[in-house]
Nucleic acid binder design. Structure first.
Lengths: 152, 152
DNA sequence: TTTGATGTAACTATTGACATTACAACAAAG
DNA sequence: CTTTGTTGTAATGTCAATAGTTACATCAAA
């Protein structure tokens, strides 16, 4: 089971906001065109990011503002805003294991700690990357493109 | 998006095989009863574990054998056998970002490395736990149950 | 008041998870 | 060699989530 594309779409949105700030008016239509999807999906994701307090969206006139310094928003913040995990658990269990079976009634006690550690390892790694890294990365890539063109 | 319960069901199966070996004949019906699901789901998971070479299943007569030492089968081995990840990637992207947009045509170069690192962090943690840990853990839990009963 | 944008609701298509029934294939015991 | 119990697997149904699309009310600024 893969993690839904809405997470990478959200990162794409942030990157566009950083790159095109001032240059273009960043609307949901504009973003939908870059990501190659439809504006409604973008607006739903923007609504989630707004609910998490990561951005503000100007109604009527359009325009997206990031509320914190880029280095203060990690991949995990974005992931948490976007992915609705039931009870915050990454791993699903089967509904109701048999309490009459010694294994069935102990399976949660047996696995919960280990699964939580695995989930934590992933989330900790997510905290290491921030929007500032994205900003830096995309500018390096665009510079490289520029130089490539000059070389021809 | 959560990881499907088939992974924890597989760990449940292994635990049952270890605990009830010799004591009961471990059939898909028996397992389905402990996990509280239906035998066909169990058989499909057994088929995946068999395809990965982790177990053998005796047709006709029934019975499951684990092919390696418990300490030689990690959670990751089970996860890999069970979860069909497209191209091995945990994170999904949107289908076809716009190549005319500077961000759209660079989004993979920008994100791929970081996402792979996050996935790797999770998988490395998964490698730390083995079926031997499960065996040890369940026996400790069952001993504790025993003592709790004696106490009353 | 017009214009252009966001916020949402409603509907659809597609996919995956999981449950369930049914039956063929098979191995061992009698 | 027939019975019995089990695995292997196809077919079908239900349910939830993803994602696309249309439509329109709401809103802010020119």
């Amino acid at each position: 089971m893969q993690i839904s594309s809405r997470f990478t779409v959200a990162l794409h949105i942030f990157t566009c906001v950083e790159v095109f700030r001032g240059e273009y008016k960043i609307t949901s239509d504009f973003l939908a065109s870059s990501i190659h999807t439809n504006p409604v999906l973008i607006r739903k994701i923007l609504a989630q990011l707004k609910a998490a307090g990561l951005i503000t969206v100007a109604r009527g006139t359009g325009g997206i503002e990031i509320t914190r310094a880029l280095s203060e928003i990690s991949f995990y913040d974005v992931y948490e805003a976007i992915e609705p995990l039931e009870d915050g658990d990454l791993f699903r269990f089967h509904d109701a294991p048999n309490p009459d079976c010694p294994v069935g009634r102990n399976i949660h006690a047996l696995l919960d700690g280990k699964l939580a550690a695995i989930q934590r390892a992933m989330e900790e790694e997510m905290r290491k990357y921030t929007l500032a890294d994205l900003d830096e990365g995309i500018r390096a890539l665009l510079d490289a493109e520029q130089k490539g063109e000059e070389g021809t």
